[in-house]
Every structure is written in structure tokens, then in C-alpha cells.
Design a protein around this nucleic acid. Structure first.
Lengths: 242, 242
DNA sequence: AAGTGGTCTAGACCACTAT
DNA sequence: TAGTGGTCTAGACCACTTC
């Protein structure tokens, strides 16, 4: 399949973003919305939608009555937590060339915790994919994904090193829409410490999350573990409703 | 000052949200946008903006061509990390009745780290406010805020137990716009462990963040420490640009 | 084919900032 | 007072789901 060209708004957004990173705006001042609309031959609404997304990403900020400006500080933020979609991409954003190693790739009976998260019954099965992300043979991230076996279109055992959202799309015909993630600090136990190459008891971050598809069905449960010394997450926090 | 009534969009959002929590929609199905617009006497654009915010919060989800639906799972999520604005509110959302204890409230010479974060020079001074948030004499959160002394309109020493965003508004005439937060897992050292009432070495979460006002000036540096056993953060992660 | 959400337009008026 | 972003309207057409 794979149809659909980028929307006008997204094209405008990309265009403005490029002009920002190329530093084409005098004093970091972005032209008035009306001017942009006329220059690009689109409505002001389209411009505003594009600018709104850029503002949300932290690339620009707006002052009512004054203008729209480049946010130099915001531009520096890589791999914003709210927008992470694959750890390959995260590591690339941090300047690494990631290697993915599949440690586990098997169907197991579901445990109680996962059954609750994914709405499965006792006795159902899940495909468990454990992956280690490395940079130059140094482990950085470990992920464990659990996908209901019932979602698999056919039993096959290939390409498990795909990002999970691509795997779900290709082999389960499900499109990931969003994750609900819980942030849990831990001290690495012996198993995790060994796999991540750190001392047992080292403080680390973990995410415990559930991914939902566009029908709002839970399709994957994931737990991830990070080496804080090599990868640190940032996010932008705003007042509710803004 | 304090002018401005809620926008039409926000009123519509609140109205729909209330109908959602009151479970007024048959089968969790929300009426078509055109119907809502007619019923409420506003344009479809206004309805869409309101629904967009509710979708972003996770309260509803939309399926093109099918309809708009209540997201039962999303409604359960309290204190979403991206929208935290005061820890008093966070604790209330978790069903606690918080007590705030001010531990430190003094002006110090700025250290190098804070100077860098806030764009200050060596020799400048900052007001340091350390606060402990408790529920029934059980500590849950410890925060350390650093505000440039130059922002203080007058030297005074009252109401330091206000939420920082209110303090900044009232005594510095600055309105907090957003935070850039870094998530850092730690093992509590002796001092933190004592203040939070846990064993030294317990794994915990900390945020290291900088708050910006509406002119995009850095106005506060904050570090916060949490007892993971009492308070756990969630957030919704989406594909970038969505 | 009918219904619903997604995108886009053109324009009006308001609120706020700068000068 | 002029300029700029913020809100809102009315309507057109498209993409997708459902029947």
C-alpha cells in the first residue's frame, strides 16, 4: 500500500524548518504569517498549523503582537521523549551508528502482567522479542517487546530486527498510534547488568509501556532499559491544555 | 491584572470533557463534529480544535471515516508528565492532600552549573528555594529551585511555599511558558535519603530542568527528586509531528 | 452510497506589542 | 496607531469506513 503524499501543512512545516536550520532568517525573526501565506501561495490557516507544530517541537516560539522567532535553545534538543519511535533513530540522533542484536525471539505462554496489559487470557501466547542496541560493541539500550501471537499473520521467524512499529505494520497489519509509558528508576540486576555491560546495582532508567494501534487496541507491551551514562532523555513540559 | 475569559474552544473542550466523565455518550461514541457544532452553536473548526486537545490528552480517539470515541484507558492516566505544572497538583491527582515544607530559602552566589543554565555570570546571585512535599508526614517529592536574584522585584521573604510558577508571576512578573526537562535516574545519597525518608542507595528518579518565560528567557533552574514507591510518572508518546 | 473525520481556503475581528 | 499573532466563522472538497 503506502499511499498519501505529505499534507500541505507538513510540506510548509518542512520548508520553514529547513530555512530555520539554514539560518536564513534575519535575527531569528520569522516573517509574519500573512507574508508566509502569500509567498507560499497557501492560506494563513495552513501556515498557522505548520508553525503550531514547529512551536510544539520547540523549534520556534511566538509572542502575540510581536512576532515569531527561532528558538535556538529548543533546536538543540535531540530525541524528545514524547516523540521517540525507534531506538535506532534515537541512537542516530545522538551521533551513534547503532547495531541491533536480537537476543530472544520466541513464543511463550503469556504471564499475568502482560495478559493484563494486552487484554489477553491465561493460556494465550505472546511473541517475545528481546533486542540489544549497541554502538561499537558497547550496549546502550535493551528492549523486550511482547506481541500477542494471535496477531501474527503467519508463523515466520525473519526480520525480527525491524523496529517494532515496522514489524507490526508489515507482519501484523497494525499501525502503531501511541504508547502509554511509565518511567521507572531501577538498580540493574545481575542479568541486565551483564547484558548492558555495567556493574550490578548501577542506577538506570526503564520504561514500561503499552503500544496502541489506530483502533485503540493494545498491540504490544514493551519494557526498555537504558544506560544513563550513554543516553539521556529530555522532554518539553507545558501547562496542561496548551 | 488577570483578564481574559476562557476561549470558546476551551469552553467547548470542558463541556465535552464533562459529558465524557459523566458517561453521557452511548457506547463511548461521541457525536459527529457537524452535530456538535450545530448543537453548541459554534463552527466546526472550534469543535475540531477542542476535540484535538482532548485527543492529545488521551481522553478520546478518532478514526477517519468512522467517528470519535471515548478512550477509557486514556482517561485513567493521572498527572501526565508533559503537563505537570505543580507538585501540589500532582499529589492531589494521586489522591493525596499535600503538605509543603520549605527547607531552604536563601540567596547564594551562583554555581557554575546553574550559571550556565540560566545565562548568568560568575558572581551573580540566585535565590534557592528547597521544598519538601509530604503526604501525612511521609515525604514524596523534594524540589530545589534557583531563581536569579536580579529578577526579584524587592527583597522579601514571604510566601516561598507558593508553586514556583505562581511565585514567578507574583514577585518577578514572569509567566512560565515551558520547561525543558532531563530525566536522570539516581541512587539517593545520604542527604536525599534522609530528607525523603528512604534507605541510602535506593533507586530514584530526578528531573533536571530549566523553565522559560514567554520571552523565552530562562528564569528558573529546578532539580526534583521523587520516591518511586509513592509517585510514578506516565506520559503518552506519539510519532513525531503528529 | 451515505456518513464521518481530515485538509484547506478566505476572510473577519480581537488582543497584544511596539513605536 | 500600525503591525502581528490569536480566535472564530462558513463553506468546499477529499479520504476513509461502513453498510
Amino acid at each position: 500500500m503506502i499511499t498519501r503524499n505529505p499534507s500541505l501543512t507538513d510540506q510548509v512545516k518542512a520548508h520553514i524548518k529547513e530555512r530555520i536550520v539554514n539560518d536564513e532568517f534575519e535575527d531569528g525573526r520569522i516573517p509574519p504569517e500573512a507574508t508566509l501565506a502569500e509567498d507560499l501561495g497557501v492560506s494563513r490557516t495552513t501556515i498557522r498549523d505548520a508553525l503550531g507544530k514547529l512551536e510544539h517541537e520547540g523549534a520556534i516560539y511566538r509572542k502575540q503582537g510581536a512576532g515569531t522567532f527561532v528558538n535556538e535553545a529548543g533546536l538543540q534538543i535531540k530525541s524528545r521523549l514524547e516523540e521517540i519511535w525507534s531506538y535506532e533513530q534515537v541512537l542516530e540522533d545522538h551521533g551513534y551508528k547503532p547495531v541491533v542484536r536480537v537476543l530472544t525471539d520466541e513464543v511463550f505462554p503469556v504471564n499475568q502482567d502482560t495478559a493484563g496489559a494486552l487484554g489477553l487470557d491465561k493460556g494465550d501466547e505472546v511473541l517475545v522479542i528481546e533486542k540489544l542496541f549497541l554502538e561499537n560493541s558497547t550496549p546502550v539500550v535493551l528492549t523486550r517487546n511482547r506481541i500477542p501471537a494471535a496477531l501474527l499473520e503467519e508463523p515466520h521467524r525473519k526480520r525480527k530486527n525491524l523496529p517494532i512499529y515496522e514489524y507490526l505494520e508489515e507482519y501484523c497489519d497494525r499501525r502503531l498510534n501511541y504508547y502509554v509509558s511509565e518511567i521507572v528508576p531501577i538498580a540493574f540486576d545481575a542479568d541486565l547488568a551483564k547484558k548492558l555491560g555495567v556493574k550490578r546495582g548501577t542506577p538506570g532508567l526503564s520504561f514500561v509501556e503499552v503500544g496502541f494501534d489506530q483502533n485503540n487496541d493494545a498491540v504490544v507491551q514493551a519494557t526498555s532499559y537504558f544506560r544513563d551514562d550513554l543516553l539521556r532523555f529530555r522532554l518539553i513540559r507545558r501547562k496542561a491544555g496548551a
